[in-house]
Design a protein around this nucleic acid. Structure first.
Lengths: 176, 176, 176, 176
DNA sequence: GATGAATGAGTATTCATTCAT
DNA sequence: AATGAATGAATACTCATTCAT
């Protein structure tokens, strides 16, 4: 519901009715409407994070391949939870909530570290891994929110991977 | 004010007070709170769009160079209006305000067309220019919202341009 | 808890927690929150009444002495149950709960009758014993609620007794 | 309305309707329901205080006569505002509100000082003027809340004055 | 045009009460 | 009997909007 309407248009009466519980019951489990909203996002990112970690734990390949794994996981998650990025448009991100900030940084750091490892091993070249780490989820977000509705996961993965692998210029090799 | 708080926490009382006008005066110029909010965003994107168009009108270079111009303009605008992307982070208001949707598509199309031209002329290779067009503002957005506070425009431009030009792998040249 | 907060700020959740029982258990012994509240007051006044009756049953002295006994009992009770008058300060619940009204009148009548006996025997002079009967608990109440915290029972008894015995003017004797 | 029902049963909707204004208008002038309630009491006591002061300003007689003036004013006020003491039953007195505490103390001090002056001049005998000062309004309260409905101001004044002047015992003189 | 006092529809939140266990 | 999770009726309070001045 938060994904299809702005935050302030979502009525807790309707949330309760849709959930099949009483209005008061929501307040047994959540402190406030805001708490409910942030909990949804927090649990979503938590799920994504744990999946990323699980995948990377089994992936002892090179940095580029691990980045592809990350992109795959991000895209799969986005298509399994198509409301997720819409959800965050509703009210934006919580600022200054230490739990949320820590969790978001965890995700960025996971990606950043993967890039750094690749740079150190000489496999990758990246002047600002921290920036690139923030770019990658942003690419998925942009696609999910604004790309044509018929976009499929495979195409999106390829496009992002392609961007990371080759860069746009077809004559890139000659430019170096 | 809309940049630093979610839509529903911005009170028109405060907006009027901050603007130094009476509450009623807002309604002389705007139909409603939503109208005010969308007007702000609409004018912001309108300004950005006109700048992009002005720059590109004078730029008769190749596609890659024009993309760099676009990135430069996006980043400069972002740093000149640091609230802008904060503002857009939660623009999840009514589904498909037609004006806004049209204008946003204008921007995406401007970028997409630049890429398509490059592909047609053989300068660029891109399987999905529409996706890439949506990626580019997303990269700026990600950086503005989540990157370290000491990020400077030059670094950001370089990083995005670099990504578009070369891709991450340092051996990219040999891959062609 | 009812003594330190107004009725509507006392939550049965807290009452149950403080009492160390489950919320539902309260409803085994009381019909409702109001019932609980009135039971507390009713039992309090009932206890006070039975003490007054017990003391007066053993007191076959004159009316003035019996009034002193009443004052002593009221003051002792007030100091033994310092919350009691706080509790009664806001007992403005349903108009005329019959049980409560009857019991309150019992107390007033007990005092009134003591005065009337004294008047009839010629020991006392009082134009309106009913009024005086209502005054006496009011004096204790006023002292308990508003007097300095270091007030002690002996002082209070003396002051009330003195007022009843002599009146304020030091030349009272000559006025008779 | 607060006089005829307990605080928590008074609905602001009804207050607004009775006052002939919109609900929101109440919140233009009062911060909250509690603020509204306390303001009513505060203004009531303020009115009473200013009347007492005005009367005493013109009264350069002896202490006993000034006390009678105070009693007269208290009783007149009580009969002119018969809801006033009922009002305070609704939620009790505000505790710790400095405005209210100061005002209440002002009233007590006004009476107390009158008694002290009488004691110093030798006109009165009172071991604890502070206590007596707190007794006097309490007598009026007791009468207004619990005395027979046909009580009239003159009777009440006489009874209180009589208590203060002579004390109860008709043989008081001989007890000294 | 500008204003801001008045408004009341709309909603988050509370808490006494119930009842299945 | 004792419980406390679930409830929803009840209500304080907010704030976008209006309109007389």
């Amino acid at each position: 519901m938060f994904a299809s309407q702005p935050y302030h248009k979502v009525r807790l009466d309707d949330v309760a009715a849709t959930a099949g519980v009483g209005k008061g019951t929501l307040y047994v489990y959540f402190q406030s409407k805001e708490d409910l909203y942030f909990t949804i996002i927090f649990e979503g990112v938590g799920l994504l994070l744990s999946r990323l970690r699980a995948q990377l734990a089994n992936d002892h390949t090179g940095a580029m391949h691990r980045l592809q794994t990350i992109v795959e996981e991000l895209v799969d998650f986005a298509f399994q939870h198509p409301q997720f990025f819409e959800l965050m448009k509703s009210m934006g991100l919580p600022r200054g909530n230490p739990h949320w900030d820590a969790q978001r940084d965890d995700m960025f750091n996971l990606i950043e570290q993967t890039i750094r490892n690749g740079v150190e091993s000489g496999e990758l070249r990246d002047e600002h891994p921290a920036l690139t780490a923030r770019f990658i989820p942003g690419l998925v977000r942009s696609a999910m929110l604004f790309a044509p509705k018929d976009l499929n996961p495979t195409t999106l993965k390829q496009q992002i991977t392609s961007l990371l692998e080759r860069g746009l210029p077809c004559g890139a090799a000659t430019k170096v």
